Computed example of a mutant assay.
Amino acid sequence: MESVLLDLLRGNAEHADTFQSRFDDVQDGQRPDAVTVCCSDSRVLQDHIWGNDAPGHVFTCANIGNRVVQRTDAGEAVSGDLLYPIRHTGTETVVVVGHTGCGAVTATYDSLTDGLDEPDGIAHCIGLLRPRLEPGVEALPDGLDRADAIDHLVEYNVDRQVEFLLDSEDVPDDVDVFGVVYDFQDVYGGRRGEVHVVNANGETSVETLRETHPDLGARVARRWEY
């Protein structure tokens, strides 16, 4: 309804009032410090989760399931949305952001366990997740309820997306790739809205991550060390 758009426009007017001078240094170009790949879930406020209000600081990508993979005529490749800042703006830090209770991971889990009938567009997205999550579904610990199984697979999916980036020849070796999970459902025992580091350049051991990245400290946490 038009009232929804009007509400958005009112919010934009307040945004414009606040940001009048914040584009001065980036009006003619960008050199973002990080590129994030988030799930497009409406509960994941991409800039807000970092407390970011500086234009030009974070290059944000979003899709269901925080995927880094796209299909091309030549086969699977790193998504151009993500690759652009790496190749064209000098960005050397990638953060793959999963979140608790992810609907895309849930749909993929249902597709793998019970079958799922979705429109072609959604089926395409799930099809990019299926081959990466299938081994995780088979390896899930016994006795998990549905919600817990999904949150285990959220971590597993983040790991697989990080792995794809690290294995790609299109991503330079000096680019750091981190995997995190955003928790707004009290899954990790911290505060709602906290980000928990689960992967750093392919390393997933909590003990090792805390030893090699001591500044991260308690922000390193995993539900599943498989």
Score class of each variant (00 low, 15 high):
E207A: 08
E207K: 06
H213K: 03
D186P: 02
V171D: 13
L216Q: 08
V181R: 01
V162L: 00
V198M: 14
N201M: 01
P172Y: 00
R219P: 04
R191Q: 15
R192T: 13
N201S: 06
V162W: 00
T208N: 10
F164A: 09
L165R: 11
V187G: 14
L166K: 13
E163H: 04
V180N: 05
E203W: 10
V175D: 00
S205L: 10
G190V: 15
V198K: 05
V198H: 05
G190Q: 05
P214R: 04
Q185K: 06
A200E: 08
F178V: 15
E211T: 13
L165T: 11
Y182F: 06
R192A: 14
F178D: 09
P172E: 00
G193L: 08
V220T: 07
D176T: 07
E163I: 02
L209E: 02
D183K: 05
D183L: 06
V195L: 07
V171F: 03
V162N: 04
R219N: 06
V198D: 03
D186Q: 12
V220E: 08
F184Q: 05
F178W: 12
G193W: 03
V171Y: 04
L166G: 03
T208P: 12
G217F: 11
H213M: 15
V175N: 04
E194K: 09
F164T: 01
V220M: 02
H213I: 10
L209G: 01
E163V: 02
A218Q: 06
L216T: 07
L209W: 08
V206M: 11
V206A: 14
E203G: 05
S205A: 07
V162E: 07
L165K: 08
N201C: 02
R210W: 00
L165C: 13
P214Q: 04
L166V: 03
H196Y: 11
E203I: 10
Y188M: 15
E207S: 12
Y188A: 11
G179N: 02
G179S: 08
E203M: 04
D215P: 03
V175I: 06
L216A: 13
V177H: 00
R210Y: 03
V175M: 04
T208S: 09
S205D: 10
Q185S: 13
V220F: 06
E163F: 02
T204F: 10
V220Q: 11
R210L: 01
V181Q: 03
E194D: 15
D167W: 15
G179D: 11
D173V: 13
Q161W: 02
V197Y: 09
D183V: 05
Y182A: 10
E163S: 02
D173E: 13
D183F: 01
V197H: 00
V206S: 03
V195I: 11
F164G: 10
V180W: 07
E169I: 06
T208I: 07
